[in-house]
Amino acid sequence: MRNEELDRALGETPPSFVHRMDQTLRGLKEEKEMKRVAFCTVVLVTLITLLLCTTAIALVSQGLEWYYNNRFTAYQENEPEKYDAIMGHLQTEPPQTTPDDPDIQIAVTEASWAQEQNVLVISLLATARYPEQAELHPMWNLDADGAYVGDSAPAEVTEDSEDRSEHWLWTPEGFGPVDEMVAPGKQLLLLDCGTPSLDGLSLDLVGASMDAYINEDGAVHTVLEVSLDFLQDDYIERQRQLLEENPEFTFLLQNIETAQELQQRLKGASSVTCTIPYTVTHYTEDDTLLYTGGRTGEIRFTLNLDSVTLSPSA
């Protein structure tokens, strides 16, 4: 294998990458010389800031604002217009039908339809229904680095420390085998939220991302981000072009059909029912049951679409 072959396999550097690099480099700022400030002024400013921060933390604790200011800060720092759009369209505690789930309590706490920045964000909080009997963790926190290699892992210890045949769990306390990370006598429940649907049509066709973690209150906070690229004027044309170039990517055909239907349904709508599927799995060492035996549920809420705009041709 030659390095030229690998280089070609990765394709050209996309123009958007080059452009973003240039933009970032242009935006760098040299530090200005610090001015001397009187000690008493520093103390006063510190006290006022502390007071304001305490109040602010109490107000925004654990919501999307906290999330984008503390856990995922890339928008706040580098794409402020996206951050502002998400914050500007926040819908708090939208009307919803919460499921009567035997294991967990789950609710949509916030949503934001920021079409001008091509993004839909949904925030969910979930806790174990019986916390004295069970601990709820995100499914993604099990073997978070993908290290678990199942029964095919060598039984003997190898020099590759990640070749192990037991599941490990990330928790706020650290990373270790499930037995050690979960409180003695408690059942481990694992939550996994899926891609949302709008009016019954899954948004699988577009880019979706997810983050899930245990927040300071011990609840599982899930943040789903879905691209609204399918509402762009040229989305369908781009998919068709891609399909022409890669006829083997038959999923693109499905993308086109779903995008057309979504555009039709959203045209002129002031709100839409958004459904989020989820799976709750009781931890088991049987991998088949662990990954396919979870109980599914769904939560529905009404998403306000007052900012939807579609091109006349859509």
Binding site: R8, L10, G11, T195
Partner: peptide, 23 residues
């Protein structure tokens, strides 16, 4: 932090196409 749901897990989501079949 952001464990992406890869919609087509067998396909890397790279915007520039490979130059030929071998690549």
């Amino acid at each position: 932090k952001r464990k992406r749901h890869v919609l087509q897990p067998d396909l890397p989501n790279i915007s520039t196409p490979p130059p030929d079949e071998q690549a």
